[in-house]
């Protein structure tokens, strides 16, 4: 009986802790959201801190979508995200599948060469020179091709494939299936969690494309969303010149830009959460 009582206290303790944690996570998001829909004068009157908005206005969002950059940047970002994720999956899966087959000739060598790139990279300038030489500079592809394959994702998928029971593949082969058939009809249907996981990694990664755009894009029309948001989030301490000509966007506008830049990703998460936890556990931790 004693143990049941203490179990209850323990449950309560866990719930309180989880609620606290949830609050800590939600708090900054709520703050950003609240400020973005509150008139700026209201924000100032409350000492810059508002958690539950008293009066609501969507003025900031109207201004944002009225700027020609934002809708265009949205399109660029969506294009980059979709293409980048598709290309990543298309390249990662066959490579990982091949590397997961123990009878592959030179498997150790290939894996070593792939892992090597995780430890040593060429650095910024050589990468820039490659992007320049391949004619990608100032095209959307500069934000897609250089990150077309992620070593980390390849290793996750490879480990996942290795953990699938070999017997399944063997029976498929006995029934006359080739490697492609094994991959598409046996391995892939069994690996949805891991596909969702690396797919989401790609989506988030390419949604947040920033550095590639900073270095490879000079055409203002090709800037992705995050670059535009960064421009709006400019703070006064970064303005060391020409302050007379520049009027900084208000906090309200800045927060609204953060909301529209992060909301799509936040919306996607709950739908894939189930697969995500599974994929992470199976793929990464055992590797």
């Amino acid at each position: 009986m004693v143990s049941r009582g203490s179990e209850r206290y323990f449950d309560i303790f866990i719930y309180v802790l989880l609620l606290l944690l949830a609050f800590v996570c939600i708090f900054p998001l709520l703050f950003v959201l609240s400020v973005s829909v509150t008139p700026y004068s209201e924000v100032l009157r409350n000492g810059g801190f508002i958690l539950i908005p008293k009066s609501i206005t969507f003025e900031a969002y109207k201004i944002l979508f009225g700027m020609k950059e934002i809708p265009r940047a949205f399109l660029v970002t969506i294009f980059v995200t979709v293409m980048s994720t598709a290309i990543n999956l298309i390249l990662t899966i066959p490579l990982a599948f091949a590397l997961s087959r123990k009878h592959l000739i030179g498997r150790g060598f290939f894996i070593f060469m792939i892992v090597f790139t995780m430890m040593f990279g060429g650095g910024l300038i050589p990468t820039y020179l490659v992007v320049q030489a391949t004619g990608l500079l100032n095209t959307v592809w500069a934000m897609i091709i250089p990150t077309a394959i992620s070593t980390w994702n390849v290793l996750i998928v490879k480990t996942f494939f290795e953990n699938l029971p070999e017997e399944l593949f063997e029976s498929a082969r006995i029934d006359g299936a080739g490697e492609f058939k094994v991959l598409s009809s046996i391995a892939l249907p069994l690996s949805i969690p891991v596909m969702v996981t690396i797919g989401l990694f790609c989506v988030v990664g390419s949604w947040n494309t920033f550095f590639a755009a900073i270095f490879y894009i000079t055409d203002n029309d090709l800037n992705p969303l995050q670059v535009i948001v960064r421009r709006l989030l400019m703070s006064a301490s970064e303005l060391n010149t020409n302050a007379t000509d520049i009027t900084l966007p208000s906090t309200t506008l800045q927060m609204a830009s953060v909301v529209i830049a992060s909301l799509p990703v936040i919306i996607v998460y709950p739908f894939v959460q189930k697969h995500l936890t599974k994929g992470m556990l199976i793929g990464a931790l055992k590797g």
Binding site: K68, E69, N220, R231, L232, E238, L239, I246, T247, P249
Partner: peptide, 8 residues
């Protein structure tokens, strides 16, 4: 360096 300035 245009800071928050953008071209119309």
């Amino acid at each position: 360096a245009g800071f928050s300035t953008t071209l119309p």
